[in-house]
Simulated scan of single mutants.
Amino acid sequence: MIVITTPTGDIGSQVLDTLLRDTNGEELRVIVRDPDRLPASVRERADVVVGSHGDAAVVDRAFTGADAVFWVVPPDPGTASLDAAFSGFTRAAAQTFADHGVGHVVGVSALGRGTPVAERAGLVTASLAMDDLIAETGAAYRALANPSFMDNLLRQVDAIREKGVFTGTVEPDRKAPSAATRDIAAVAAKLLLDRSWTGIGAVPVLGPEDLSANDMARIVSAVLGRPVRYERQRLDELGGTLSGYGLGDAFVHGMVDMMRAKDEGLDAGVPRTPDTATPTTFTRWCEEVLKPAVLA
């Protein structure tokens, strides 16, 4: 049995869709706060455990009889600390992995381990500490080491449509990897289905190319057939914007520290190889995902 957390999330929903197509008869179970958000077809085919996967009683029920777990920590903008948001949220599940002898866990994490800035990278630092916690449980563990998501640009669809601009804090010509969430989900599903792997390790998911923000602006412009530019935002401006949305101080500082670390090379520590590259180019993602959203 495979257990999927965050089955209505950006990545979790795509992992679930893939597993529903390709399980070869393997049982699926999902943990979800609001089962009404699941399509009827999912509720018919998967066992549903209602509640938070940060709750010890919920994960005790969900992981009973589980062979593998897809683990994602949901964002907690109001958290008192990043340790509480990541390792604190995961602690009950980690104990349950050990108690129930869960053999394999695949988790969504981040690039950066081993880089000079990894210890001051905010959300990423906390995510890497969560990986260490899971690694101590005795389960075989693969941390999906992700760069920034192409799909994050969907948060700026209105600005792209109405103003021809998207913003970020990285230096405009700094090239870095990015990945489509559908590729991350595909890597996760493959690991969950083929559990021949053992031990502890990271699986970098780097996309097919490194691009700068200016490169992305040129591609978006070409795909949309209209000029779109990148506008750099200061880190203090980012912090002020997030605080204005009501996000808590710990989360805001964690986001700012992460973005500062990305501009200092956080995502540059892993070389791209056939094993770490994923297929969706930014151009293809813009054509198939961003453009329909902008035109909607």
Rank of each mutant, 00 (worst) to 15 (best):
F251S: 04
T6M: 14
V49C: 06
V220M: 07
P177K: 09
Y230N: 00
L206V: 04
L111A: 11
V69W: 02
T283K: 05
Y230R: 07
H253S: 08
G254W: 09
K262T: 06
V102D: 09
P292E: 10
A143W: 09
V105P: 01
V117M: 07
F86M: 06
G25I: 10
R232I: 06
L111W: 08
A143C: 13
E44V: 07
V15K: 01
A46V: 15
T181N: 15
P271A: 11
S127R: 14
V3F: 09
G248C: 03
Q14L: 13
L211H: 13
A143I: 03
F63Y: 11
T281P: 04
A217I: 01
D55L: 10
G101C: 06
G12I: 05
R229M: 01
F86N: 11
E119Q: 15
R120M: 10
A80N: 08
L224S: 03
E231D: 06
L192Q: 01
P77A: 13
Q233K: 01
G114N: 05
T115R: 14
A202V: 04
A94L: 08
H53C: 09
A140S: 10
A110R: 06
V270P: 10
V3Y: 02
E237I: 00
D132T: 13
G78I: 13
R45A: 12
A180S: 12
R21Q: 07
G78L: 12
D34Q: 14
T125W: 08
G103H: 03
T198L: 02
E231V: 02
L211S: 05
L235G: 14
P227M: 01
G164Q: 09
A222Q: 14
P7Q: 12
V203Q: 10
E237Q: 13
S196W: 11
L144C: 06
R155W: 01
R226D: 05
T125H: 11
E27C: 07
R226F: 00
V42D: 10
Y141I: 09
N214S: 01
R226I: 04
N152F: 05
P274K: 06
F282Q: 03
T280C: 02
R260V: 08
D22G: 15
D183A: 15
V165D: 03
L128K: 14
L193R: 15
V49L: 12
W197Y: 12
A202D: 08
A176Q: 11
W285L: 03
